[in-house]
């Protein structure tokens, strides 16, 4: 049993890693085909496992409804919307032909059915608004927590102020130097740091990848 639970996964990971590395260095069309095939595999894998995540979320809310925990009404609402959208998706109504095609035929993405309406009236404004709240939060964060507590923080502050000012047309009217400085910060120091961080990230991730490959890092197995 230990073989199946432990050695088999580790040796499979190692073998697949070797195949992955090989496919980069071997240009032969065999390795080309192998890469193409793995792309198909991983896509199919994603398609087959798509219900696991939904199951987890629905279970949490199902438990909430069953136990009538605080706020179970919202969970019921979540279910209502989930079921509505899924039903509309399964019916797969096509406004162009005026027929319901069922879930086994391709969906016309331009069709105006319940899914489309809910997407446009609820999902789209809700997620766009959630995104736009960042505008409030960023200002609030800047206003309340942006203090030159240390020299480093002061450097960050000054750079941020220059760039912020350089970002609006007003600054050019005050002085042409401000947009120039903001561009300069962007093009030189920012670029240098980018590069250094990329070096570091590369070495770090190669290190971790090697540990995974040789079975030292096994967190993907969920511990022993």
């Amino acid at each position: 049993m230990r073989f199946f639970k432990f050695y088999l996964p580790i040796s499979l990971a190692f073998a697949m890693a070797i195949l992955g590395i090989t496919s980069v260095f071997v240009p032969h069309h065999y390795s080309d085909n192998f890469q193409k095939e793995t792309v198909v595999w991983f896509r199919v894998l994603g398609g087959v496992t798509m219900f696991i995540g939904a199951y987890s979320l629905l279970k949490v809310h199902f438990n909430r409804i069953r136990r009538q925990q605080k706020g179970w009404g919202y969970s019921a609402l979540l279910y209502a919307f989930f079921i509505t959208v899924i039903t509309c998706a399964i019916v797969n109504y096509d406004t162009a032909t005026g027929k319901s095609k069922g879930p086994l035929e391709a969906r016309n993405m331009a069709t105006k059915d319940g899914v489309n309406w809910i997407f446009n009236a609820i999902q789209r404004p809700a997620s766009a608004t959630q995104y736009s709240l960042l505008g409030f939060f960023i200002c609030s964060a800047a206003y309340r927590t942006f203090r030159a507590k240390t020299v480093e923080a002061a450097v960050l502050l000054v750079a941020a102020l220059i760039v912020m000012l350089g970002q609006v047309p007003l600054s050019a009217t005050i002085s042409g130097a401000i947009p120039w400085m903001s561009n300069w910060l962007l093009n030189w120091p920012n670029m240098a740091v980018k590069r250094a961080i990329l070096f570091g990230i590369c070495v770090g991730s190669v290190g971790t990848s090697l540990r995974v490959m040789f079975g030292i890092e096994r967190s993907y197995m969920g511990g022993d």
């Binding site: 960042l134 800047a142 960050l156 750079a159 941020a160 350089g166 970002q167 740091v193």
Partner: peptide, 22 residues
């Protein structure tokens, strides 16, 4: 210091972007 300059620049640019979305 260099890191902080880069983060500051990144922050300044993002403020503009987020306000546009708002």
């Amino acid at each position: 210091w260099f890191l902080m300059i880069a983060f500051g620049a990144s922050f300044g640019y993002t403020v503009q972007g987020r306000l546009s979305l708002l």
